[in-house]
């Protein structure tokens, strides 16, 4: 037997090995122990975004402004976001646009523009509803052109998109 449960000291049946900064830590739990659920959640939360942030964005930290900048609406700082992987409000996408662009492109295979569904309310309220559809198509074509490395076409499409966006 490998020892007692971390949480309640009953005989342990579940054994986890975690690696923290190169050091191996063994943990033991009994089945269904609340401590196990808590520890597992803490360990697993937002692994992908944390990896993105630590492995990629930090290497490009030249692009990150001083850590003091915070969002007026929710008070979050970039440092806080890096820790949790979660934004505080919709305005953060504007406040931290530059920094987030790196994260977003990395997570979405280089994509920077939404081409999918638009809320019906918005589509209906637009001055020229058809323009929305065309814009979406232009962006799709642009993505395809970039993928095909047809940069001449991509440049044209980009100009068209800028014009359409007004």
């Amino acid at each position: 037997m490998k020892g007692d449960c971390e949480g309640c000291k009953k005989p342990a049946t579940i054994h986890l090995t975690e690696i923290f900064g190169g050091k191996k830590v063994e943990k033991h739990y009994c089945e269904g122990c609340p401590k196990l659920a808590g520890d597992a959640l803490a360990a697993k939360s937002h692994t992908p975004i944390n990896e993105l942030l630590s492995n990629f964005v930090l290497q490009h930290s030249g692009a990150v402004r001083d850590a003091g900048t915070s969002c007026e609406a929710c008070g979050i700082t970039w440092a806080e976001f890096k820790q949790t992987g979660l934004l505080g409000c919709e305005h953060d996408y504007t406040v931290f646009e530059r920094e987030l662009n790196l994260v977003i492109q990395r997570a979405h295979e280089g994509a920077q523009h939404h081409v999918g569904k638009v809320p019906a309310r918005r589509a209906a309220g637009a001055i020229v509803p058809k323009k929305k559809v065309d814009l979406a198509r232009l962006r799709r074509d642009l993505a395809k052109a970039i993928e095909a490395e047809d940069y001449e076409r991509a440049a044209k499409l980009r100009d068209q998109i800028r014009q359409a966006e007004g």
Binding site: L86, Y93, V118, P119
Partner: peptide, 29 residues
């Protein structure tokens, strides 16, 4: 379902990034 709820709740949406989510790995659609 999404359309019906958007009618009354108005979801956060940006022209460039689409639906805005707490984690940027979900943004867009």
């Amino acid at each position: 379902v999404d359309d019906k709820l958007d009618d009354s709740l108005e979801f956060a949406f940006s022209k460039r990034l689409g639906y805005l989510t707490a984690c940027p790995t979900n943004v867009g659609t």
